[in-house]
């Protein structure tokens, strides 16, 4: 899932200050799951913004809406009925959602209310951790299902650096050393010898090194 986190209120307020009628749009996908931009957060943000502007002596009109998915044009189309009544759109979706809206409603300014963080998994209630960098060339098959690209602070592909202690990364005692995990896993799987194979220099083109990426499924395209 794509994770996100609400922007500092000051920043959001700065964006929307010039406008009187705001369309605040949440998304019922990833940002709902990571509690950053679902119906509940939309309500909370609207409330916070109301508090702020009312305190300043201003009433602004905030219309709350939550779309099933902001990264699909069909769902974004649902805003059409509200768009004329808004001076600006504040989106609580990830960057994809914000851009989809921006593309559809070119005449209206669109502002992000969240910072899109990373592709992650939830570790426990309220804790999300990065698990994938979207490098486009998955190597989990040879690293025991643990990704060194996403989880090693230095993206090392050939084993841990010298900074590991007690299985933790040198950058913080709270961060597990990905390579220690990989090693433990390989051992458990009886695949220790995998480790000794040198992983050649990675081709970063599928990771975006070759410019914006695109997937085209000929069979599905109309």
């Amino acid at each position: 899932m794509i994770t996100a986190e609400q922007k500092p209120l000051n920043e959001i307020i700065a964006y929307i200050s010039p406008y009187d009628r705001i369309l605040l749009v949440g998304c019922n996908e990833c940002v709902t799951v990571c509690s950053a931009g679902g119906r509940k957060e939309v309500g909370l943000l609207a409330s916070a913004l109301n508090l702020h502007f009312l305190k300043q002596g201003r009433t602004i009109d905030i219309k709350e809406m939550t779309l099933e998915r902001q990264c699909d044009p069909e769902y974004v189309e649902e805003l059409v009925s509200e768009i004329d009544r808004a001076d600006a759109i504040l989106s609580m979706a990830c960057g994809c959602g914000v851009q989809t809206i921006a593309e559809r409603y070119k005449e209206k300014p669109v502002f992000p209310a969240v910072n899109t963080k990373f592709m992650g998994a939830s570790e426990s209630q309220g804790v999300w951790v990065e698990r994938c960098k979207g490098c486009g060339d998955c190597m989990l098959g040879i690293t025991g299902g643990i990704c060194p690209v996403a989880r090693c602070s230095k993206h090392l592909l050939n084993g841990p650096c010298g900074g590991t202690s007690n299985g933790m990364c040198e950058i913080s005692p709270d961060v597990e050393c990905a390579w220690c995990l990989i090693w433990e896993r390989l051992k458990a799987l009886g695949m220790e010898n995998r480790y000794e194979e040198i992983m050649e220099a990675k081709d970063w083109r599928p990771a975006g090194g070759g410019g914006p990426r695109k997937i085209i499924r000929e069979d599905l395209s109309l």
């Binding site: 509940k40 309500g43 909370l44 409330s47 916070a48 109301n50 508090l51 009312l54």
Partner: peptide
């Protein structure tokens, strides 16, 4: 009690 309830009460 949801955070929203508290916020709305203030609002």
């Amino acid at each position: 009690v949801d955070a929203i309830h508290i916020m709305k009460a203030l609002e």
